[in-house]
Amino acid sequence: MIVVEAQSLQKNYNGFPAVAGIDFKIHRGECFGILGPNGAGKTTVVAMIYCFLPISGGKLTVLGKDVTLEPRSIKTKLGVVPQENNLDLELTVRENLLVYAGYYGICRSEAQKRAKELLHFFGLSTKADQEVEQISGGMKRRLTIARGLIHTPEILILDEPTTGLDPQSRRLIWEHLRKLKKRGLTLILTTHYLEEASQLGDELIIMDKGKILEEGKPLELIKKQVGAKVVEVEISPGQSHALLGTLENLISGYQIAGNTIYLFVAEDENAAVELINSSGYVQTYRVRPSNLEDVFLKLTGRGLDYAETEETGFIL
């Protein structure tokens, strides 16, 4: 069952197209990842889904309802975890949940019960009566997610849920999100962490400059775009083309960044490695499984951290 559907969805900021006509479908129960660098339009997309930003063109339906016509009834069924923590600093951990429950019109006793369950689930029970100011960044993040679940939504939207957290807190949040997914909750997640996208995402869209570059399941995307293995080769820049010449038949594509060439191996990495070894140009090399970053590099010619590669080539 489709819970979110975008058709030629557009968003302009003073004429600048932040989202330039995209189509996607999100199904019930899946974790839908929106991956891309800062400024790709990820936050804009989710802000239109949770009816904060009005759409500039196209059509967007959430749970069968049009975002421009029925925002209130859509928002009743969504949970939102924004990029920036916007917890109520003047209230305690528990009060944050109770006050938020009030916005949805949940009665006091039901809210108390839900708050207790959520605090327990997110490991915040011992902090329930502390001021929000006093808890750690990771806890604040967990509390923000708990707050988004207080009204038992059908879809939980998470905008960069682990940005700015230390690795341990990040993993803890992933753990909680996995559990929520198992319970059948639909998750929509924006991220610029490849690991996060591949750990949690069932379906991904990769966005850049307001457009969708590619979509699919993480592993399939990697297989389709770059193959299973990547060979990273250190080489002096003058010799890279000579090397590429000898490998022509064995690779599906390459990228040159400084003294490193990334070689996307088509089929058999052993044959490629053998050639690299015998070429005489190569100082060091490393074979590793390919990942989403390679996909992104291939699609855009630059990494998620904006580092431009100098040359990208594909052998079809």
Binding site: F52, P82, N86, D88, Y100, Y104
Partner: peptide, 14 residues
């Protein structure tokens, strides 16, 4: 600073 308005408009309140 506290972004309370943003937090509230994500709920049914406009």
């Amino acid at each position: 600073f506290q972004k309370i308005y943003h937090a509230i408009v994500a709920t049914p309140i406009n």
